[in-house]
Design a protein around this nucleic acid. Structure first.
Lengths: 124, 124
DNA sequence: TGAACATATGAACAGTGATTCATATGATGA
DNA sequence: TCATCATATGAATCACTGTTCATATGTTCA
Protein backbone atom coordinates (compact mmCIF):
# COMPACT_ATOMS: atom_id res chain seq x y z
CA UNK A 1 0.00 0.00 0.00
CA UNK A 2 1.19 3.50 -0.73
CA UNK A 3 0.97 6.52 1.52
CA UNK A 4 -2.57 7.31 0.43
CA UNK A 5 -5.19 7.62 3.16
CA UNK A 6 -3.05 6.11 5.86
CA UNK A 7 -5.38 7.88 8.21
CA UNK A 8 -8.81 9.22 7.37
CA UNK A 9 -8.26 12.07 9.77
CA UNK A 10 -5.39 13.34 7.64
CA UNK A 11 -7.92 14.76 5.23
CA UNK A 12 -9.54 16.86 7.93
CA UNK A 13 -7.84 19.67 9.71
CA UNK A 14 -7.36 19.44 13.46
CA UNK A 15 -9.23 21.15 16.20
CA UNK A 16 -7.51 24.41 16.88
CA UNK A 17 -9.31 25.61 19.98
CA UNK A 18 -10.56 22.79 22.13
CA UNK A 19 -12.04 25.14 24.70
CA UNK A 20 -14.15 26.94 22.10
CA UNK A 21 -15.28 23.69 20.52
CA UNK A 22 -16.31 22.28 23.88
CA UNK A 23 -18.07 25.43 25.03
CA UNK A 24 -19.98 25.86 21.77
CA UNK A 25 -20.84 22.17 21.61
CA UNK A 26 -22.40 22.41 25.05
CA UNK A 27 -24.68 25.26 24.07
CA UNK A 28 -25.33 23.98 20.57
CA UNK A 29 -28.87 23.79 19.25
CA UNK A 30 -30.21 20.25 18.96
CA UNK A 31 -30.82 18.60 15.61
CA UNK A 32 -34.59 18.27 15.86
CA UNK A 33 -35.01 21.97 16.50
CA UNK A 34 -32.61 22.84 13.69
CA UNK A 35 -34.51 20.70 11.24
CA UNK A 36 -37.81 22.29 12.23
CA UNK A 37 -36.31 25.72 11.83
CA UNK A 38 -34.84 24.85 8.44
CA UNK A 39 -38.19 23.51 7.26
CA UNK A 40 -39.81 26.72 8.37
CA UNK A 41 -37.33 29.03 6.64
CA UNK A 42 -37.28 26.87 3.53
CA UNK A 43 -40.83 27.98 2.91
CA UNK A 44 -39.63 31.57 2.54
CA UNK A 45 -36.94 30.51 0.09
CA UNK A 46 -39.21 30.27 -2.94
CA UNK A 47 -40.37 33.22 -5.05
CA UNK A 48 -43.84 31.86 -5.66
CA UNK A 49 -44.52 31.26 -1.99
CA UNK A 50 -43.08 34.63 -1.05
CA UNK A 51 -45.35 36.33 -3.55
CA UNK A 52 -48.36 34.44 -2.23
CA UNK A 53 -47.51 35.50 1.30
CA UNK A 54 -46.94 39.07 0.20
CA UNK A 55 -50.23 39.18 -1.69
CA UNK A 56 -52.06 37.79 1.33
CA UNK A 57 -50.53 40.51 3.48
CA UNK A 58 -52.45 42.96 1.30
CA UNK A 59 -55.77 41.16 1.26
CA UNK A 60 -57.53 37.90 1.91
CA UNK A 61 -57.80 36.16 -1.46
CA UNK A 62 -59.21 33.10 -3.18
CA UNK A 63 -57.03 30.70 -5.15
CA UNK A 64 -58.06 32.01 -8.57
CA UNK A 65 -57.34 35.58 -7.59
CA UNK A 66 -53.91 34.65 -6.32
CA UNK A 67 -53.20 32.80 -9.57
CA UNK A 68 -54.35 35.84 -11.53
CA UNK A 69 -52.18 38.24 -9.56
CA UNK A 70 -49.10 36.06 -9.84
CA UNK A 71 -49.75 35.01 -13.42
CA UNK A 72 -49.25 31.38 -12.43
CA UNK A 73 -51.32 28.25 -12.95
CA UNK A 74 -54.02 27.36 -10.47
CA UNK A 75 -52.35 24.03 -9.87
CA UNK A 76 -48.99 25.52 -8.97
CA UNK A 77 -50.66 27.93 -6.56
CA UNK A 78 -52.68 25.15 -5.00
CA UNK A 79 -49.61 23.02 -4.45
CA UNK A 80 -47.80 25.88 -2.78
CA UNK A 81 -50.80 26.79 -0.66
CA UNK A 82 -50.68 23.27 0.65
CA UNK A 83 -47.11 23.82 1.78
CA UNK A 84 -48.03 27.11 3.42
CA UNK A 85 -51.00 25.48 5.10
CA UNK A 86 -48.94 22.60 6.45
CA UNK A 87 -46.46 25.09 7.85
CA UNK A 88 -49.36 26.98 9.41
CA UNK A 89 -48.49 30.18 7.65
CA UNK A 90 -51.89 30.55 6.02
CA UNK A 91 -55.41 29.64 7.02
CA UNK A 92 -58.53 29.42 4.89
CA UNK A 93 -62.25 29.65 5.05
CA UNK A 94 -64.77 28.23 2.62
CA UNK A 95 -67.62 30.21 1.15
CA UNK A 96 -69.54 28.04 -1.27
CA UNK A 97 -67.21 26.91 -4.00
CA UNK A 98 -64.67 29.55 -3.21
CA UNK A 99 -61.90 29.15 -0.65
CA UNK A 100 -60.37 32.27 0.82
CA UNK A 101 -56.83 32.24 2.14
CA UNK A 102 -55.24 34.62 4.60
CA UNK A 103 -52.22 34.87 6.88
CA UNK A 104 -52.16 32.68 9.95
CA UNK A 105 -48.98 33.83 11.61
CA UNK A 106 -47.94 37.14 13.08
CA UNK A 107 -44.27 36.51 12.41
CA UNK A 108 -44.59 36.65 8.65
CA UNK A 109 -44.60 40.43 8.54
CA UNK A 110 -41.64 40.72 10.89
CA UNK A 111 -39.64 38.14 8.96
CA UNK A 112 -40.34 39.97 5.71
CA UNK A 113 -39.21 43.17 7.38
CA UNK A 114 -35.90 41.65 8.45
CA UNK A 115 -35.40 40.32 4.95
CA UNK A 116 -36.07 43.70 3.40
CA UNK A 117 -33.69 45.40 5.79
CA UNK A 118 -30.98 42.92 4.95
CA UNK A 119 -31.19 43.21 1.19
CA UNK A 120 -31.45 46.99 1.41
CA UNK A 121 -28.32 47.24 3.51
CA UNK A 122 -26.40 45.49 0.77
CA UNK A 123 -27.08 48.27 -1.70
CA UNK A 124 -24.54 50.86 -0.65
CA UNK B 1 -60.49 17.76 -33.57
CA UNK B 2 -62.29 16.74 -30.41
CA UNK B 3 -63.45 19.00 -27.59
CA UNK B 4 -60.12 18.84 -25.80
CA UNK B 5 -58.35 22.10 -25.04
CA UNK B 6 -60.55 24.22 -27.24
CA UNK B 7 -59.39 27.07 -25.07
CA UNK B 8 -56.34 27.08 -22.86
CA UNK B 9 -58.15 29.28 -20.40
CA UNK B 10 -60.66 26.53 -19.77
CA UNK B 11 -58.13 24.79 -17.58
CA UNK B 12 -57.76 27.78 -15.32
CA UNK B 13 -60.48 29.12 -13.11
CA UNK B 14 -61.74 32.64 -13.66
CA UNK B 15 -61.02 35.74 -11.74
CA UNK B 16 -63.59 36.03 -9.01
CA UNK B 17 -62.91 39.47 -7.61
CA UNK B 18 -61.55 41.84 -10.19
CA UNK B 19 -61.30 44.70 -7.71
CA UNK B 20 -59.15 42.69 -5.31
CA UNK B 21 -56.95 41.41 -8.12
CA UNK B 22 -56.42 44.91 -9.46
CA UNK B 23 -55.77 46.46 -6.07
CA UNK B 24 -53.32 43.75 -5.00
CA UNK B 25 -51.60 43.78 -8.38
CA UNK B 26 -50.96 47.50 -7.99
CA UNK B 27 -49.27 47.11 -4.63
CA UNK B 28 -47.54 43.85 -5.50
CA UNK B 29 -43.87 43.41 -4.79
CA UNK B 30 -41.68 43.43 -7.91
CA UNK B 31 -39.96 40.31 -9.15
CA UNK B 32 -36.37 41.46 -8.62
CA UNK B 33 -37.03 42.19 -4.97
CA UNK B 34 -38.84 38.90 -4.50
CA UNK B 35 -35.98 36.96 -5.99
CA UNK B 36 -33.49 38.71 -3.76
CA UNK B 37 -35.63 37.99 -0.73
CA UNK B 38 -36.02 34.34 -1.71
CA UNK B 39 -32.26 33.99 -2.16
CA UNK B 40 -31.78 35.48 1.26
CA UNK B 41 -34.25 33.22 3.04
CA UNK B 42 -33.07 30.18 1.13
CA UNK B 43 -29.85 30.45 3.08
CA UNK B 44 -31.75 29.83 6.31
CA UNK B 45 -33.46 26.80 4.82
CA UNK B 46 -30.57 24.40 5.32
CA UNK B 47 -29.68 22.65 8.57
CA UNK B 48 -25.96 22.87 8.08
CA UNK B 49 -26.02 26.61 7.43
CA UNK B 50 -28.39 27.19 10.32
CA UNK B 51 -26.07 25.31 12.63
CA UNK B 52 -23.09 27.30 11.43
CA UNK B 53 -24.96 30.53 12.03
CA UNK B 54 -26.09 29.36 15.44
CA UNK B 55 -22.57 28.31 16.41
CA UNK B 56 -21.21 31.66 15.30
CA UNK B 57 -23.80 33.39 17.45
CA UNK B 58 -22.07 31.76 20.41
CA UNK B 59 -18.50 32.50 19.42
CA UNK B 60 -16.21 33.54 16.62
CA UNK B 61 -14.76 30.32 15.20
CA UNK B 62 -12.30 28.99 12.67
CA UNK B 63 -13.33 26.54 9.96
CA UNK B 64 -11.88 23.50 11.68
CA UNK B 65 -13.63 24.29 14.92
CA UNK B 66 -16.95 24.67 13.14
CA UNK B 67 -16.43 21.34 11.39
CA UNK B 68 -15.61 19.74 14.73
CA UNK B 69 -18.70 21.14 16.44
CA UNK B 70 -21.02 20.12 13.62
CA UNK B 71 -19.32 16.79 12.98
CA UNK B 72 -19.16 17.60 9.29
CA UNK B 73 -16.33 17.57 6.77
CA UNK B 74 -14.15 20.63 6.35
CA UNK B 75 -15.08 20.77 2.70
CA UNK B 76 -18.81 20.86 3.33
CA UNK B 77 -18.36 23.63 5.89
CA UNK B 78 -16.16 25.60 3.56
CA UNK B 79 -18.69 25.38 0.75
CA UNK B 80 -21.45 26.60 3.01
CA UNK B 81 -19.33 29.38 4.46
CA UNK B 82 -18.89 30.60 0.92
CA UNK B 83 -22.65 30.85 0.56
CA UNK B 84 -22.96 32.67 3.87
CA UNK B 85 -20.12 35.02 2.87
CA UNK B 86 -21.72 35.82 -0.48
CA UNK B 87 -24.99 36.58 1.27
CA UNK B 88 -23.05 38.80 3.67
CA UNK B 89 -24.24 36.90 6.69
CA UNK B 90 -20.73 36.14 7.93
CA UNK B 91 -17.44 37.95 7.80
CA UNK B 92 -13.95 36.64 8.44
CA UNK B 93 -10.50 37.69 9.52
CA UNK B 94 -7.25 35.94 8.87
CA UNK B 95 -4.66 35.22 11.53
CA UNK B 96 -1.78 33.34 9.97
CA UNK B 97 -3.06 30.10 8.52
CA UNK B 98 -6.30 30.27 10.47
CA UNK B 99 -9.41 32.08 9.29
CA UNK B 100 -11.95 33.15 11.89
CA UNK B 101 -15.57 33.57 10.95
CA UNK B 102 -18.22 35.59 12.74
CA UNK B 103 -21.66 37.09 12.15
CA UNK B 104 -21.89 40.04 9.81
CA UNK B 105 -25.56 40.89 10.11
CA UNK B 106 -27.68 42.10 12.97
CA UNK B 107 -30.83 40.56 11.57
CA UNK B 108 -29.69 36.98 12.01
CA UNK B 109 -30.56 36.91 15.69
CA UNK B 110 -33.97 38.46 15.12
CA UNK B 111 -34.77 36.09 12.27
CA UNK B 112 -33.81 33.13 14.44
CA UNK B 113 -36.03 34.49 17.17
CA UNK B 114 -39.04 34.73 14.87
CA UNK B 115 -38.36 31.21 13.68
CA UNK B 116 -38.20 29.89 17.22
CA UNK B 117 -41.41 31.65 18.16
CA UNK B 118 -43.19 30.16 15.18
CA UNK B 119 -42.17 26.56 15.77
CA UNK B 120 -42.88 26.87 19.47
CA UNK B 121 -46.39 28.15 18.84
CA UNK B 122 -47.15 25.00 16.91
CA UNK B 123 -46.59 22.82 19.94
CA UNK B 124 -49.79 23.32 21.83
C1' DT C 1 -79.49 14.75 -10.25
C1' DG C 2 -76.18 16.41 -13.27
C1' DA C 3 -73.57 20.13 -15.49
C1' DA C 4 -70.35 23.73 -14.27
C1' DC C 5 -67.01 25.65 -11.55
C1' DA C 6 -63.28 26.24 -7.76
C1' DT C 7 -59.91 23.81 -5.75
C1' DA C 8 -56.90 19.77 -4.63
C1' DT C 9 -53.76 16.19 -5.75
C1' DG C 10 -50.85 12.26 -7.74
C1' DA C 11 -47.28 11.25 -11.02
C1' DA C 12 -43.70 12.61 -14.05
C1' DC C 13 -40.11 15.67 -15.38
C1' DA C 14 -36.56 19.10 -15.04
C1' DG C 15 -33.74 22.08 -12.53
C1' DT C 16 -31.42 22.96 -8.21
C1' DG C 17 -28.46 22.18 -4.51
C1' DA C 18 -25.71 19.83 -0.69
C1' DT C 19 -22.10 16.64 -0.01
C1' DT C 20 -18.03 14.10 -1.36
C1' DC C 21 -13.66 13.48 -3.52
C1' DA C 22 -9.63 15.16 -5.23
C1' DT C 23 -6.86 18.83 -5.56
C1' DA C 24 -5.49 23.75 -5.39
C1' DT C 25 -4.16 27.92 -2.81
C1' DG C 26 -1.88 30.40 0.56
C1' DA C 27 0.55 30.99 4.88
C1' DT C 28 3.98 29.32 8.33
C1' DG C 29 8.28 27.90 10.18
C1' DA C 30 12.21 24.96 10.08
C1' DT D 1 12.62 26.85 -0.15
C1' DC D 2 10.20 23.03 1.15
C1' DA D 3 7.09 20.43 4.01
C1' DT D 4 3.02 21.11 6.60
C1' DC D 5 -1.24 22.79 7.83
C1' DA D 6 -5.80 25.50 7.24
C1' DT D 7 -8.85 26.62 3.97
C1' DA D 8 -10.98 26.93 -0.72
C1' DT D 9 -12.84 25.06 -4.85
C1' DG D 10 -14.16 22.39 -9.24
C1' DA D 11 -16.54 18.33 -10.76
C1' DA D 12 -19.50 14.54 -10.01
C1' DT D 13 -23.29 12.51 -7.72
C1' DC D 14 -27.55 11.95 -5.47
C1' DA D 15 -31.56 13.70 -3.37
C1' DC D 16 -34.91 17.11 -3.30
C1' DT D 17 -38.36 20.27 -5.06
C1' DG D 18 -41.35 23.24 -8.12
C1' DT D 19 -44.13 23.00 -12.16
C1' DT D 20 -47.03 20.73 -15.43
C1' DC D 21 -50.48 17.57 -16.88
C1' DA D 22 -54.29 14.94 -16.05
C1' DT D 23 -57.72 14.02 -13.10
C1' DA D 24 -60.25 13.87 -8.67
C1' DT D 25 -63.06 16.13 -5.09
C1' DG D 26 -66.59 18.88 -3.48
C1' DT D 27 -69.99 22.62 -3.90
C1' DT D 28 -73.67 25.20 -6.28
C1' DC D 29 -77.53 25.84 -9.07
C1' DA D 30 -80.70 24.81 -12.67
Amino acid sequence: MDRHNENIEDLKCNVIHEDVVESVSDKMIDMDTVKELAEFFKVFGDSTRLRILYALSLSEMCVCDIAAVLGTSQSAISHQLKVLRQMRLVKYRRDGKVIYYSHDDGHITEIFRQGFEHINEEKE
